[in-house]
Nucleic acid binder design. Structure first.
Lengths: 237, 237
DNA sequence: ACCTGAACACCGTTCAAGT
DNA sequence: ACCTGAACACCGTTCAAGT
């Protein structure tokens, strides 16, 4: 913009881990997991393969960095002020939406274990568990259960979205659920009585709402099992 | 064994989808996800690549078939007799153990959506939800929450196991948890107070027990929210 | 210190040719 | 109908050579 800047021009901007990660996220978002190749990256960054390897050890590290970037953004604004219960919902929903927007992170998150990115999620959820007033001896188990549910639900949702996208461009929620519902209708009625019976509920449900209903189920369990006679929330002041 | 059998000899046994899937599962179990290649398969089956493609469309279909085989086995013996609540636990634990034994299925299960293998899991869990006496309008949401938790928890556990295996051969549970706990101790105390605080609980916990504790949390929530004034279980006779 | 780009090993998939 | 195996296109990674 200003002519006097000392910054390097756009076209020759130095390569960096950040720029590479940013380009990787964009490629993953637009072309899916198979779209992230070093050739596509070198083209987009107008450089050679060796230049990328100077900044990043290998493809696995690049995928981890991309996943971490998405999750850090999703957890960036900690939910403040609201009741602990609503803060749990807010953190969970933030993660759910991030995975929905970047379906490829689901596979990454369940590939990595309690390392790199996972502790960020665990910490965010855990702090809300503590705020709920859960007794300390149940902190780990409660936070784990919530994180596992969140990752599982977000992953299933991402898979559905990704599959629907593969069928056609930019499908809306109705189309996605419709295609799954049609698949269910093709199931054998003898073998799948329950699944067939809830086909209408599948069609009618709202993903985000139902995700939160699952969170509420766990929170109700926490209340019943761990908050019975303790205070519901710690004193606020 | 018997000399009179009319069956073809081992070495020339005809290729089939079943034999190919079986070999794929073995390769995945012993060499991990990257160990399943068409070259390794052709060698193991003493055939050419084209022969495999005659029976299987592509690698994706092969992975789906392998996943389906594992899950079908895991769900083969339906838990009978016990109380609905214990049957939920039994189905869940069967899946948990299957994913632990075949860590590569975790990634597959979250890649596929409500198709092929997933409905089997949904149906098995759903039938127990129905048996619990959950009102019909909550069947879909309740079964979904349970399945999502099961897949999420099994996936996280599989990732931990796989990572530990990568570090050394045949690590026991203590080693696995120890390596994760050490990673947690390296985290910044300011940024990860909760995670650091529960490091000892991580070390001490039992995976399967805690997995079931998560199931119990959800079941307690189901009781609190959906079984309040209804019967706990349907009449048995 | 950082980047270039050709080269290498390996992989999924195809296909003309066999039986 | 089923199998063989060479060939093709593509990918992650390396590395000698440049600046």
């Amino acid at each position: 913009m200003a002519a006097r800047t000392h910054r390097p021009r756009r076209r020759t901007e130095a390569l960096s881990r950040e720029r590479i990660t940013e380009a990787a996220v964009e490629l993953l978002d637009t072309a899916g997991e198979s779209g992230l190749t070093f050739r596509a990256l070198t083209e987009r960054l107008a450089t050679g393969a060796g230049a990328i390897y100077w900044h990043v050890a290998n493809k696995g590290e690049l995928l981890r960095a991309a996943t971490d970037a998405v999750i850090v953004t999703a957890l960036a604004t900690p939910p403040a002020g609201a009741a602990p219960r609503d803060r749990v919902r807010a953190v969970a929903l933030g993660l759910f939406d991030a995975v929905e927007a970047h379906p490829w992170v689901a596979a990454q998150l369940s590939a990595l274990p309690y390392q790199s990115t996972a502790p960020r999620i665990f910490e965010s959820v855990g702090q809300q568990v503590k705020a709920l007033g859960v007794p300390e001896e149940h902190w780990f188990a409660t936070a784990s259960a919530l994180v596992e549910y969140i990752l599982g639900a977000a992953g299933q949702n991402a898979a559905n979205t990704a599959t629907a996208r593969a069928l056609g461009p930019a499908p809306d929620r109705g189309e996605i659920l419709g295609s799954v519902a049609r698949a269910w209708e093709g199931l054998d009625a003898e073998e799948y009585p329950f699944t067939r019976a809830v086909g209408d509920q599948l069609r009618a449900h709202d993903d985000r709402e139902q995700f939160l209903a699952g969170i509420d189920l766990i929170l109700a369990g926490v209340t019943a099992l761990h908050l019975q006679d303790g205070p519901r929330t710690p004193r606020e002041h």
